[in-house]
Nucleic acid binder design. Structure first.
Length: 909
RNA sequence: GCCCGCUUAGCUCAGUGGUAGAGCACACGCUUCACACGCGUGGGGUCGUAGGUUCAAGUCCUACAGCGGGCACCA
């Protein structure tokens, strides 16, 4: 068999995914066990315009580990993929293309044609990310792929809207909203970002009517003064007490405006008097409502001044108007001062344009009502369970405690159109379809609301709508809801996570997911957030090309919920790990004649040799650790356990020990039947451990494990989990059973004995290195142990020890005097010593120094331990088991010191 | 202003009250018949600072510092 020396990830990555998908391995239907428990994950649907970034790769790696693990465990497993129509982003992408290719705007082609073009674009270019997910190895069920604008999901959206409208949770009316002057649409509070910005605070004086007195107000936005309809002060502020109820003359405009008292105003800030612009500031809007103030709109949807701002300003951009207003104040001597001031500015989350708060008639959802059930659930039962719990449970809870109305409508064309129709008189009919609306209105002359819904409105339904809701009897809904876990980034806990909980509780009476796993954030190597604008993003596809998908997945999975700076070294080390796996398998396969997976471990474990009992014990412990770690979302622990089991235990020791038995006959030599049988058995054992290891690794490294597994002797359908055995699919590791730990095979004694052997070999290697003995030179070693059973144990493994430490001979004795003076020595656990006679090679002084150093180290340790043991408080209060443990250690260290002292004596003679 | 997180080896990060860890990097030695993407050996840490609780603190508590994040306010 030809097996290259270096693993080529590309080859494996291109070999298996298409078959898995074609044969239906990802679909839950592959599971024939009627009693199988369900495990389901709804993917956070990436934007249809999007392409894969590190954040996706991170989330997908974790979801795929969970999915593949549970599938191998026999769960009826569904990971449901799909994409989001991403209203504004997609609309802009297509508008840009229209402009570039035909020099037209969406208004030139008209709404229907534009929507047709968007669909066309989606068919042609959309979903690039779904191809990239196949590259990642994501085991999603493509047969259930959904898009938020699918007919079925759109029906769910209308159902959601109509029901909430009927219950009074959704209403239409004027309100203060965030308006993006560039995108020309309303936005919810979650779609805007606050940024701090260096600006100026302008102190403006407003004359008191019928007096020389002036009231000074401070503002960062002087242009809005044209729309002022009051000045407010704190009711307890003596400075202004006598002014409350009196009238001011608004400069430039000449309007008479009242001075009102309101608790909202803080005495300490600015001058303690606030100009009130109800039409252009959310706080002023609320204040204006309380005091029944007029709303004067002086800025329009394009952020230009309106006619109401006055002829002098009409048509000016808001920033031009600002300069003009300030000039006018200066001219009239009403500008008191201007100071530098840093303040927060609200920007459109998408295009970064400064938001203009406007009063506008929009559709709103009373979130506080919908949020009640999720709030109770998290408070009383801590559901869903957040991982990590801290800080996310609290963040989520605080959010639900402070819900406000959600601005639903968007002045866009691409999206779910609001299911509301108006008759000629302007009466509104909200209905599931136009026919129902007509029936309700009693006329055909209806016009549908031109606006569409916030993209997150359909996202809020994702877990239920993708499973079939509003068809309550949908089989998928029955089987897979609630979903098992949601894996996502922290920045959409409010925007999305909380809202899915709201709809799930409302329409299904159940949480949308049992657990919520929040991933960490990946930064660049300088600790900066990766972003398109900064251009510091690392493309996961490039990393796949360079190091392979499996290696990248290991890095991502082990990051889990930790914020991490990206570091290629880490991927490189896992690339090396993949190569290690490849070569371990290569060794097994080159020596696999006569071997069979699953054989070789016949009979009672007590009859097996030490290293067999040991590796089986280690394997079972690892299986136990890895399963517990995955189920507890501690992915780094799982990866760590797998890495060290495979590399340290299996490769460094088990394979090395097995070589003697596995390499077999020299060419041409005729083996006896018994020898052939034991050779095959030994080879089977190595291959069996390898096969189990590959299964354990598969959820993390799907490609290399499948590639190697299929090459192992004796793999086939009978190794698949019983739930999949009857399925019409080719044998595949992804449907094999995930190894379960068998407590009966965990053998602490074997592990301790093996550890002693490992220590002996390590001490001998250390001596070789420290004394500069050439690798080719053989040495002799003597183990001195009073304990006979210890001598027997080393004796039983002496062949292995000799080979790994490159010894000419290994002798056991209880008599120290048998060892020549000119020996290098080391202490071992259990009161044993090892000596290497090296006549002529020993520099006595150097050797004494080496041992003295070691003794000093041990003495320091003994001091520490004895200090603790001589503390009566410790003896009295520490658990007896701890005290005993420490006594043991003191004894062991004491013994080592004694032995080291004797060695020094021997060297001094 | 309120809340939260982080601070451990040169770097990136694990660490569950009881002997401080990994990978990479570093030093030395190796074409040992799976693997130089490898093998062997070694050096490197008063766990941010100061207190406290405890027989015992990297781990729990308090304060402080630095870095990062969220929420509110910002006229």
């Amino acid at each position: 068999m030809e097996i290259p020396k270096t693993y080529d990830p590309k080859q494996a990555e291109e070999s298996h995914y298409a078959r898995w998908e074609r044969e239906g391995c990802f679909a839950p239907e592959v599971n024939a066990d009627a009693d199988a428990p369900a495990y389901s994950i709804a993917i956070p649907p990436p934007n249809v315009t999007g392409s894969l970034h590190m954040g996706h790769a991170l989330q997908h790696s974790i979801m795929d580990v969970l999915t593949r693990y549970h599938r191998m465990r026999g769960f009826r497993t569904l990971w449901l993929p799909g994409t989001d129509h991403a209203g504004i982003s997609t609309q802009i992408v297509v508008e840009r293309q229209l402009k570039k290719e035909e020099n037209q705007t969406r208004h030139d082609v008209g709404r229907d044609e534009f929507i047709r073009r968007v669909w066309e674009w989606k068919e042609q270019y959309g979903g690039e990310i779904t191809r990239q997910m196949r590259r990642e190895g994501a085991s999603v069920d493509w047969s259930r792929e959904r898009f938020t604008m699918d007919e079925h999901l759109s029906r769910a959206v209308r159902e959601f809207f109509v029901r909430c409208y009927e219950e009074g949770l959704i209403y239409r009316g004027p309100g203060m909203i965030n308006w993006c002057p560039k995108d020309q649409t309303a936005l919810s509070d979650l779609e805007v970002d606050k940024e701090s910005q260096a600006g100026k605070l302008y102190y403006l004086q407003y004359p008191l009517k019928g007096s020389d007195r002036r009231v000074t107000v401070a503002t960062t936005r002087p242009e809005t003064m044209l729309g002022d309809t009051a000045v407010a002060v704190n009711p307890n502020d003596e400075r202004y007490a006598e002014l409350v109820g009196r009238t001011l003359i608004l400069p430039i405009v000449g309007r008479e405006i009242p001075v009102v008292a309101d608790e909202f105003v803080e005495r300490e800030f600015g001058t303690g008097a606030v100009k009130v612009t109800p039409a252009h500031d959310p706080n002023d809007y609320a204040l204006g409502k309380r005091h029944d103030l007029a709303q004067v709109q002086v800025i329009d949807q394009h952020a230009r001044m309106t006619r109401e701002a006055g002829a002098e300003f009409e048509g000016l951009d808001r920033y031009e108007a600002r300069e003009r207003v300030v000039e006018k104040f200066e001219e009239s001597g009403l500008l008191e001062k201007v100071v530098d001031y840093e303040f927060a500015i609200t920007k459109c989350g998408r295009c970064r344009t400064v938001i203009e708060p406007l009063i506008s008639t929009q559709w709103f959802l009373k979130q506080s009502e919908l949020g009640r059930a999720p709030l109770e659930l998290i408070r009383e039962r801590h559901e869903p369970r957040f991982v990590p719990e801290n800080p996310y449970e609290k963040v989520y809870t605080n959010w639900l405690e402070n819900l406000y109305d959600w601005t639903l409508s968007r002045q866009l064309w691409w999206g779910h159109r609001i299911p509301a129709w108006y008759d000629e008189k302007g009466n509104v009919y909200v209905a599931r379809n136009e026919e129902d609306a007509r029936r309700a209105a009693g006329t055909d002359k209806l016009e549908q609301d031109p606006d569409v819904l916030d993209t997150w409105f359909s996202s809020a339904l994702w877990p239920i709508s993708t499973l079939g809701w509003p068809d309550e009897d949908s089989a998928d809904l029955q089987t897979f809801y609630p979903t098992s876990v949601l894996v996502t980034a922290r920045d959409i806990i409010f925007l999305w996570v909380s809202r899915m909980m709201m709809t799930g509780m409302k329409f299904r009476g159940e949480k949308a997911f049992d657990d919520v796993f929040i991933t960490g954030t990946i930064f660049d190597k300088h600790g900066q957030r990766m972003s398109k604008m900064k251009g510091n993003g690392i493309n996961p596809l490039d990393v796949f090309d360079k190091y392979g998908v499996d290696a990248t997945r290991l890095v991502l999975a082990s990051m889990g919920s930790t914020d991490t700076r990206w570091n290629d070294n880490q991927v490189e080390s896992y690339r090396n790990f993949a190569n290690k796996i490849w070569n371990a398998a290569r060794f097994c396969l080159l020596n696999s004649e006569g071997a069979q997976v699953g054989k070789g471990f016949e009979g009672e474990p007590a009859t097996w040799s030490l290293h067999d009992r040991w590796i089986v014990s280690r394997l079972n412990k690892t299986a136990r650790e890895v399963s517990a770690a995955i189920e507890g979302y501690q992915f780094h622990e799982a990866v760590y356990a797998l890495y060290h089991f495979f590399w340290d235990d299996f490769c460094d020791w088990y394979i090395e020990f097995s070589k003697e038995e596995v390499l077999g006959a020299v060419a041409g030599e005729q083996l006896s039947d018994a020898a052939t049988e034991s050779l095959s058995a030994a080879r089977s054992r190595v291959v069996t451990i390898l096969e189990q290891s590959l299964r354990l690794l598969h959820p993390f490294m799907p490609f290399i494990t499948e590639e190697l597994w299929l090459r192992l002797p004796g793999v086939g359908a009978d190794l698949m989990h019983r739930a999949y055995r009857s399925a019409d699919v080719s044998p595949t590791i992804m449907l094999a059973e995930y190894p379960r730990a068998d407590a009966a095979l965990i053998d602490e004694q074997a592990e301790a004995e093996m550890q002693a052997v490992v220590e002996l070999v390590s001490r001998l290697r250390n001596i070789r290195n420290e004394l500069g003995i050439k690798p080719g030179e053989s040495i002799n070693a003597v183990v001195i142990a009073d304990d006979e059973s210890l001598r027997d144990k080393f004796g039983a493994s002496s062949g292995y020890i000799m080979r790994l430490a490159r010894l000419e001979s290994l002798r056991m004795t209880s008599d120290r005097n048998e060892v020549p003076r000119a020996s290098a020595r080391a202490v071992l656990a259990g009161g044993a010593e090892v000596a290497v006679p090296l006549e002529g090679l020993i520099d006595f002084e150097q050797e004494r120094a080496r041992i003295t150093r070691e003794r000093e180290k041990q003495e320091k340790e003994l001091q520490k331990v004895e200090a603790q043991l001589s503390n009566p408080q410790f003896i009295a209060r520490a658990p007896a088991e701890k005290v005993e443990e420490l006594r043991q250690r003191a004894a062991d260290v004491g013994q080592r010191i004694k032995a080291l002292g004797e060695m020094l004596e021997a060297l001094s003679e």
